[in-house]
Computed example of a mutant assay.
Amino acid sequence: MPTPLLEVKGLKKYFPVTGGIFSRKVGEVKAVNDVSFEVYEGEVLGIVGESGCGKSTTGKALLRLIEPTEGEVIFNGENITKLDREAMRLKRRDMQIIFQDPYASLNPRHKVEKILSEPLLIHGIGDKEERKRKVREILEIVGLPGEHASRYPHQFSGGQRQRIGIARALIVNPKLIVCDEPVSALDVSIQSQILNLMEDLQGQFGLTYLFIAHDLSVVKHISHRIGVMYLGKMAELAPNEDLYSNPLHPYTKSLLSAVPNPDPDLKTDRVILEGDVPSPSNPPSGCAFHTRCPECMDICKEVDPEFKEFSDNHFVACHLFNDK
């Protein structure tokens, strides 16, 4: 097996809950609770799950945009959770992010040229003329005219703004890009354009993506492997085709049954989950999914299942498969 470009081991991110007159800590929200996975060079690892399952927090924590509570993030053989602020700043040239909201992630007071040249300035790449040239080049690469560098973000549509967001992540030539729901804020007609652009760029620049989304059809289109998260934990991780043809975890089955099928004559068995997602500040004992699981057993209520390999490269955390 090749060495992974990114290795996440036991990642945890807890947010304190405060209360009372003196704002003392009265609890904690376990947003990411012991997540481990690997991303190999040149692949796209998709992470899916319901809103609030911890996928975006995972992406931001492994880039240290928010500091992890526990765990290791090994990027290119180096544990980046141990780096000081300056070393981490230098490392960010290789690790970039595309944010979910193209309206909020671009500074409305700055022209596109300033927004895109800022990463070059921070990392000391090129002189003023070279930075100008690189900005125009990268705009052409993402499908916008170079002269649009003199415009402000409000003069662009949502899809165009997301292209600018992609250009900003790409301009320092990173190895890994965390894509935090990059198409969920866009019209459906624009989503496919942005996804196709990202696929083309991956081939052109040899990029590695961690692609976070809640739309399983979007993830299927772009990912090589897919991880399914539930309440801060990884429930299942498998190659793309394997996950869609042979889902193991009851939660994965329910998610896949909700994906619309374009064939009106095809009848699918819809798995409706009872109840709501439990609070991450007070997760249930045992398996976090047992309160909604249609196949819940007694052991599920008391023992947290181990996340382990069931078949070739297909991992699952479920007591249904623990004795197989």
Rank of each mutant, 00 (worst) to 15 (best):
L5G: 00
K12G: 08
I21S: 07
N33G: 00
V35T: 05
E43L: 12
V44T: 15
G59L: 00
R64D: 03
E70D: 10
N76I: 07
A87T: 11
M88N: 06
R93I: 15
P102G: 09
P102C: 09
K114V: 14
E118V: 07
L121Y: 12
L121H: 12
I125W: 03
D127L: 11
K128Y: 13
K128L: 12
V135D: 12
I141P: 02
I141R: 13
E147A: 05
E147N: 11
P153E: 07
H154T: 04
H154C: 08
R161L: 05
R163P: 10
N173I: 00
L176N: 01
C179T: 01
V183A: 05
V183L: 12
A185Y: 01
L186N: 04
D187L: 06
S189V: 13
S189M: 10
G203Q: 10
L207P: 02
Y209D: 08
A213C: 07
D215E: 13
L216I: 04
L216W: 01
S217H: 04
H224A: 05
I226T: 01
V228T: 00
V228I: 07
L231W: 04
L237F: 04
A238G: 00
H249R: 01
A258W: 00
P262W: 09
D263M: 07
L266D: 01
D269S: 14
I272G: 00
D276K: 12
H290P: 08
P294C: 10
C296H: 02
F310N: 08
C318T: 09
K324E: 12
K324L: 14
